[in-house]
């Protein structure tokens, strides 16, 4: 399988936070989600991938041949969008289109108009134009997404694209991801970050879990769902089940947790219910374990 992005030992140090060393392989032709709580380092990693922030150590290889020294080639190939204040606030759709046309070789104005129409933002060539500062957070995010999706890129890197979108817009975004990936026969890749995977579960093929600036788990979603199991049972057996659980929650009557699939037989013998977790449940379980490990330290 081809790799869109190979990240080796990427490190970035701030005063009170250190990212890394991060080792990730992003498969080409798939949609990868960076999942983690607020402050896990997702935005920092995305900014390093796109050249917005410099890393202190480590290497990256893009599409099997470019490195972070090849920024002039990579700028047109990577479509990057941050979650907030991506464009100056006094710009309107018309200005966004004009500047994007100058700033990138592969911006398609016609496609931008179509996307603005799909996102119900209005006509970029219209006379009355609302400035970004007057738009809602959701419409601003739609503008950013329309601008980046109107470019012919090979790698789409989006920071929390769904955070301010309503459910219909999120659904539309998922469809757009699928269309984007399908257009170039597996040569395009999407990376997005989220702290709420429930909204983007159906468009996520590959997941990378982050906590405290480190990658704690990664893999194709289908493989992860076979590696882990969701366990629930009566509160009376929770004490016996806990040693096998990576993380769990419980109340007076029942408990629920994530465990490794290899422990399924032992857990089944305790009269617990076992099922395949959703990505959302897996995220909660894995991130909760990371939180517990951090508190123990």
């Amino acid at each position: 399988m081809d790799t869109a992005l190979n990240i080796k030992d990427i490190t970035k140090k701030y005063k009170d936070f250190t990212l890394g060393g991060i080792d990730i392989e992003i498969p080409m032709g798939f949609s990868s989600a960076l999942i983690g709580a607020n402050g896990a380092g997702k935005t920092t990693l995305i900014d390093i991938i796109c050249g917005v922030t410099a890393n202190d150590a480590g290497k990256m290889e893009y599409f099997g041949k470019y490195t972070d020294n090849d920024r002039s080639e990579l700028r047109n190939m990577i479509g990057y969008c941050s979650s907030a204040n991506y464009f100056p606030m006094d710009w309107n759709l018309k200005k966004v289109a004009e500047v994007m046309d100058v700033a990138f070789d592969n911006f398609d104005r016609k496609k931008f108009s179509e996307l603005c129409d799909k996102f119900k933002l209005g006509d970029p060539s219209g006379k009355k134009q609302k400035k970004l500062m007057k738009m809602s957070d959701g419409n601003r995010m739609r503008t950013y997404l329309a601008a980046v999706l109107a470019r012919d890129t090979s790698l789409l890197v989006l920071d929390e694209p769904a955070s301010s979108l309503d459910p219909l817009a999120r659904d539309l975004l998922c469809d757009m991801f699928r269309d984007y990936l399908a257009e170039k026969d597996g040569e395009r890749t999407v990376i997005f970050s989220t702290h709420n995977i429930a909204d983007m579960e159906f468009v996520t093929d590959h997941a990378i879990f982050m906590a405290g600036g480190k990658v704690i788990e990664q893999g194709f979603v289908e493989d992860l769902k076979e590696k882990y199991i969701l366990v629930h049972g009566d509160a009376s057996v929770s004490e016996k089940a806990v040693p096998y659980l990576l993380s769990s929650t419980s109340n007076k009557t029942s408990f629920e947790g994530i465990a490794l699939a290899e422990d399924a037989e032992k857990l089944a013998a305790l009269d617990t219910a076992i099922e395949q977790p959703t990505l959302q449940q897996l995220s909660i379980g894995i991130l909760r374990k990371a939180e517990q490990d951090y508190e123990e330290k």
Partner: peptide, 14 residues
Amino acid sequence: NLPGWKFLKTVKGG
């Protein structure tokens, strides 16, 4: 620290 900074860091020419 003004809006648009991240966009400007990724445009053609850098």
